[in-house]
Amino acid sequence: MTPTEFASQLLQLGLALALAPLLVGWINQCRAWLQNKSAPSLLLPYRTIRKLFMKDAVVALQASPIFRVAPYVVFGAMCCAAAIIPSLATDLPFGRAADTIALVGLFALARVFIALAAMDIGTAFGSLGARREMFVGFLAEPALLMVLFTASLISGSTSLPTIVDVFAHRELAIYPSLAFAGVAFAMVSLAENARIPVDNPATHLELTMIHEAMILEYSARHLALIEWASSLKLFNYSCLGIALFFPVGIGVAGAGWTALVAAAPVLVAKLAVGGFALALVETLSAKMRIFRAPEFLGTAFLLAVLAMLVNLLLGS
């Protein structure tokens, strides 16, 4: 491990931790603008997290250790994922340790723990939310894997830094398979991050909640960690999408310090555009019935499989 690699790894992780709440704030602001409401402050997510960290935690009497451990596990899994995904540079010591399949595994680990914690308390809404989350998760995961396999087929490796290196260096060509995979990935990200067509992040109605229903019992530092982790998850998915489909500007292997410094503003600009696009999608679409979710995610899976088949047939 050279000092440059170490520095880029640290810088990337720090940037992810610092920027993730900002991304959520930016999306909320864009959504408020698009819906003709007065927008909340861009820094509101930071203030919420700070406020929650200063409060005293309340834990239910019958809560088992799983309930206390889950926020730390979820937050840790999201930090690991942020360290693996090449958002600034591909010279990552962590990137070599885990490939795309391990990344999907990390997301699954976080999901399992938060669902277990929700069922642990034994409230009706908790187990309802947990079941819905697993229902959406088991449909979204194969589609995500298929998208990643398509990228792996094109680049000949399941390791994310290699994929990004190959994608950033290839000749400019039209890849129908990547277009399909991109649409499938966008659909999966909407479902996984509890955004509007599948779940409403701003809802106050318990019966329609998925993600929010699972964390109803959490308070103070636990809630702060979970909120931070879910913003990190959104950040991770955005960075994964950028790395796979718009890799221009990411510091490729051996690019050195200047590329690393230049990559940060490019990443912020791409995230700003992506966040606006997400707010636009959320404004334009209505929440689906929960039993429509299989059709939505089935379409994503179909697109991802078609991407892989088209890639095998046409070689592009």
Binding site: E171, A173, S177, A179, L302, L306, L314
Partner: peptide, 27 residues
């Protein structure tokens, strides 16, 4: 991977689009 001429890439793109539309009709 040998790169195809641009028009062949466009043909591939429209072929993939055709397949997608066939699925859309099915659904």
């Amino acid at each position: 991977m040998a790169t195809l001429p641009l028009y062949a890439q466009f043909i591939n793109l429209f072929a993939a689009f055709l397949l997608l539309l066939a699925f859309a009709m099915l659904a």
